[in-house]
Design a protein around this nucleic acid. Structure first.
Lengths: 340, 340
DNA sequence: GTTTGATGTCGACCATTAAAGATGTAGCAA
DNA sequence: TTGCTACATCTTTAATGGTCGACATCAAAC
């Protein structure tokens, strides 16, 4: 592996001259530039990113951490799509992505801090899902460049989020328009921000249409198929009536499907079901699932775009900036009571 | 941010002494060690990973590249599970993972080479899917440490693979035992190694049971739901008879489901369907899909383990080592003709 | 008084960047 | 023609934050 010194020697110039032709814009005579470039080509020289990082004291690497719990909720293609979006934009700006998956929020916090303290990354992308995550506060306190992804935050930080409130609102409206009125809400745990945002949209729609907001019809459960099933079974046992279910996640909606199947309730005639995330395979269920499509790719793309922008223009610190991505309700059979 | 010099000053020793208490094992009196450790704690010192990398000339980072085509095939949870496995083992050994997703094999090759030439990573994990990937040969030629994941390779390199041939064999055997005899094979493109391995297992089982290996019953298509549907429709139009389908991927199997539904063929009575990958939601289809479960987490874990091991014990170069992971056929309704 | 082992210090090195300094040439007034 | 400034171009030097082998010191042991 050749170094800048080798190139310098071959080109008959000093290492710093080589450095400057690499950097470009500096004033260098055309003759020397050509000579250096020829030497670089000849030696197959590629600058050592590590040495460069040390000298410039930044790495052109951004860290993306996610904890297992989130991974579970953010199931399937969501994750890989987000990654694709990230990777694509990162590459455009010549940045790299350091990935770190943790088992729990505590471990995630440690890893994040470590990445920053070790100076491995210039900034972080956070996908913490819990309501008051100490990590966000800590990072914000230490002026670490980071942006929060896929959730709303009440702190003055950078973030990119899906419009979960609006999506919850529209999904509920859709169910109401289809003639459902006893709409149950299947939520994830109470401290899961995404889920609560969707819940708020639901509440907004219900009250706007003057439908009773019966707290009995709202169940907080684990984000699993089983959780969805159990929640509805519980409702049934309690004698709570419902003719539709808005699930905060497709997995929960899947549980609702199972529930309907098990108790021979016909979907969508007697039970309307709407999920969140538009997990691809859901399209092929019978009946096909109505679901809110999240722009996963764009989420990843926007989030690194915002971070890199902040990294390279660190003008106004501690400002709040929130990019909100639209979501789209994909209406399919599971909620189409009125056949038009 | 404090440096090793700051720590040295506070502890009243030289930087090298600090370096050695960090490294551990070196001969240092308990007294000095304690003093240094106290100084480190006081200053909240964390060694700069970049500087360390430069001095030691290795980064404790491994690169994982995947190209879009693969990502598509390796759909959904497979990808995130692999990542989890990787991350988990990497963390155990105090390694980091640099992720790079490309749009096509060409871009993937460039990125891999770049990562290595820039010295950003110590080694690579490759998940190329095509039969004769020039990247593998090139890397092997340049003595770059890497291990190939999720596919078989005929070159003398390190790899971790699922036992696709055996899995294909068992899946076919299962169908035969269930009384199906005109088994069609839905394959991905011909240069997709994984798919071809599964195909080989299929052939093996068929010939072992003296069933005709009719090439008409084998269709090579895109790894999509539509591809699966079209392939079977084509078979039908050509008048080829089949009472079961072994699909090289769940998406293809999904296409078979759609086909059956569209032409009112009852599954599993008149058409047995078996897929590959055991995509979670498939369990909830009606009928539920029989599929080969791949140990995605283990795949990621093993591959990192092998790479790190090779990185830290670079004894025998250019040896072939292949770790083969078992897979499991999850029998569900779509292939259960005999109710027992 | 020399050997020995434990404990420290020194300084070269890793590959690069950036600020400051050197060199040479041209322009221009005296 | 000389002397001085200005400028372009390149080189030197000193960082960046560590690591590691070679050498120094010193007390205990022989």
């Amino acid at each position: 592996m050749s170094t800048i010194k080798d190139v310098a020697k071959v080109a008959g110039v000093s290492p710093s001259t080589v450095s400057r032709v690499i950097a470009g814009n500096r004033r260098i005579s055309k003759k020397t530039r050509l000579r250096v470039q020829r030497a670089m080509a000849e030696l197959n020289y590629v600058p050592n990113a590590i040495a460069r990082s040390l000298a410039r004291s930044h790495t052109r690497t951004i860290g993306f951490t996610i904890s297992r719990a989130v991974d579970q909720a953010f199931s399937n293609p969501f994750f890989s799509e987000v990654l694709r979006g990230m990777s694509s934009v990162a590459q455009m700006h010549d940045y790299n992505i350091l990935l770190s998956i943790s088992m729990d929020p505590k471990e995630e916090m440690e890893k994040c801090l470590r990445l920053i303290q070790e100076r491995r990354v210039d900034g972080l992308i956070l996908s913490t899902s819990r309501l008051h995550d100490p990590l966000i506060a800590a990072l914000s306190e230490d002026d670490v460049p980071f942006v929060v992804m896929g959730r709303s935050v009440d702190l003055p930080v950078l973030s990119v989020n899906n419009d979960n409130v609006k999506a919850g609102y529209h999904a509920t409206m859709h169910l109401i328009e289809q003639g459902y009125c006893n709409i149950a809400f299947l939520s994830g745990p109470k401290d899961l921000v995404v889920s609560m945002d969707r819940f708020n949209g639901y509440k907004q729609a219900m009250s706007e249409k003057d439908l009773p907001l019966d707290s009995q019809r709202v169940v907080f459960t684990e984000l699993t198929e089983q959780g969805g099933f159990d929640a509805l079974e519980q409702l049934k046992e309690q004698g709570v009536l419902f003719d539709a279910v808005l699930a905060a996640d497709d997995l929960l909606a899947l549980g609702a499907f199972q529930f309907a199947k098990h108790f021979s309730i016909s979907v969508p005639e007697d039970l309307g079901i709407v999920g969140f995330n538009d997990t691809p395979v859901m399209e092929y269920m019978t009946p096909s699932l109505t679901s809110v499509r999240i722009l996963s790719y764009d989420l990843g793309a926007e989030v690194v775009d915002l971070l890199i922008n902040h990294l390279e223009n660190p003008d106004k610190r501690r400002a709040k900036k929130e990019i909100v991505l639209p979501s789209e309700l994909i209406i399919r059979d599971s909620s189409r009571r009125k056949k038009d």
